[in-house]
Design a protein around this nucleic acid. Structure first.
Lengths: 207, 207
DNA sequence: ACTAATATCGACTATCGGTCGGCAAATGGG
DNA sequence: CCCATTTGCCGACCGATAGTCGATATTAGT
């Protein structure tokens, strides 16, 4: 059964299906054959569009990171919100968990997805750091933040936000989360050198 | 050729060889057959001792983390050194890079080793947090540190130290490292709430 | 010496990611 | 309108892999 489609269409089809499978089943546990079955193409077609299974993964990660960065950018540009809150919301909005169906939440970051996870972290940092750098520079200029190593603070905050709350490396009880979030905000405030409690009302949201 | 050995001996043999291979070649790129060839046993023997290749990985990680924690513990117990420096040295000593041959350094934390890396991070945090908790509590009691969420600060510091300097997710130039280390120390100081510059002489070491 | 527990073997299987040569459909120029 | 070239597609095949299993050899207890 041969159905011909324009190249870019096929490519997107494969990416969509693969992304769904990688996120729900895990990258390692998803075989190329699994993808073929759903997209309903032969092996040769898959490798006509992608050099390897890992190439598909890389493309998907770029997509996910880019979508997150665009959401973050929207948050940062909303001048009606105070700067610190904007930054906080950008960090939250960036996380893939906040788009689409909520069921995906736990699936993406699982043991079998270590490779996806690692590549994602790397790409996310590279994409997000410049965005936050602008925002933090604004905070420094307006005497809201006081710090000597803005770039390093941003990297640390992004990394912590991701590792603590998006990955599943910390196995916390549900009941722990409010305290963990408060701790994170406190550390973020200190690294940025804000007036203590600047994020206090934000903190209420999680109490 | 059949050579029989006591169970525990064989098990340790397998673990030693596997660890060496995983660290130098990477977990994914090391096949069970690679291990068999060196230990000089048949497949059945391997699976007589370990349920899967991944079970071997898990055992190895526990070993590595435990060795690191023991080194860290020695640092923390050295009363002749000021507390902050002790903590800093414990964090550094914990890293697997600091034991044995230096060549291993880059190998362990590579793209193909994402699974090893992730499991390691998780186990390391669980093992190291309680150790540092004692030390930080001492710092709080002696009015050296001032912070409301000690546990969360420790988790963050451990995580950052590991992710920034042990993994290879940040692709920095060699020339960047002094600044990155200074930034890390600054953030650490702020999270712990020490007198600013408390770690200043430590910082000299990396300038 | 017999038995039971322990340790070892290696052929075998299912599945995987990836290759390759050939076929079919669209394209477009003469 | 025909034919050649490009583009899209096929699926049998390959080597390697993690893991299985029933047979066999060694050791230890009595």
């Amino acid at each position: 059964m041969k159905t011909v489609k324009e190249g870019e269409v096929r490519k997107r089809e494969i990416l969509m299906v693969a992304r769904d499978l990688f996120v729900t089943k895990g990258y390692e546990k998803t075989s190329v054959n699994d993808i073929l079955k759903i997209v309903d193409i032969a092996k040769g077609t898959f490798y006509y569009y992608f050099a390897s299974k890992e190439a598909v993964l890389a493309a998907i990660i770029l997509d996910i990171v880019d979508e997150g960065a665009k959401r973050a950018e929207r948050m940062l540009n909303d001048q009606s919100v105070p700067l610190i809150k904007r930054i906080m919301m950008a960090i939250m909005a960036q996380s893939p968990e906040f788009e689409g169906s909520e069921e995906i939440r736990d699936e993406m970051h699982k043991v079998e997805n270590a490779k996806l996870e690692q590549l994602y972290t790397k790409a996310m940092l590279k994409r997000m750091t410049p965005l936050l750098e602008v925002a933090v520079a604004e905070g420094i200029a307006t005497d809201l933040f006081h710090l000597d190593y803005p770039r390093e603070a941003i990297e640390s905050i992004l990394l912590l936000g991701h590792m603590l709350f998006d990955c599943n490396i910390m196995d916390w009880e549900m009941a722990d989360y409010p305290k963990k979030i408060q701790g994170f905000l406190a550390n973020m405030e200190r690294m940025l050198g804000t007036r203590a409690g600047e994020l206090e009302d934000f903190l209420q949201m999680f109490a």
